[in-house]
Amino acid sequence: MKRTFPLVICFGGGIIFIIQFFIPHPVSKAIYDEALNWLIIVSVFAFAIALESLFRVHGTKIKRRKPGWGFSVIPLVACITVGAFGIIQGVREGTVFMKVFHYITVPMSATVFSLLAFYMASAAFRAFRATTTRATVLLIVAFLVMFGRVPIGPFVWKGLPDIIEWIFMYPSMAATRGIALGVGLGIIGTSLKIILGIEKGWLGGGGK
């Protein structure tokens, strides 16, 4: 009941959906669509666990007056306020909920994303300092590709865009395919182990 049944469910679900792939019949498609719907419904309740964790972490900090506890008030208040506005007002354009999304969430996402411009430079500098031959090859190719994609690159060397295209089409593509083939086998292997009940780490050790 505690360990065997979940493994049986996992096995059954896995086999059903392997077989489903080969059956084009509308009933098969309906089962697939219904299963995806079920997964979304199940994940709605899983989100409650996530909320509990967020409130517990920050609530504990506030309760125990840990260093920086004042900041922990912010995510709790923001979460409750925005969530309440969302449920009461709805998620239409023009609501406070959507204004928060457009003027707080989206700009901050874009800003964190844009930090990559700086981090790429520092990552390249760190790789350059490493002075291993492999890091050097990586950097030389990266520099060539970067240089070739800006207007000055082809201006300095006319053949540069062709070289870059060749790098992408042949040696880079070769490594990408090799890794993809290996990853494909790895995914299939791990999936089979999960379905067959060989990989059981997700069960945890409790409730034996």
């Binding site: 989100f47 996530a50 964790s53 967020l54 517990r56 504990t60 901050m108 994303f113």
Partner: peptide, 12 residues
Amino acid sequence: EDVSFISSSQFA
């Protein structure tokens, strides 16, 4: 609290 939820948003 050591195993915690941060946010479902990628950059948050």
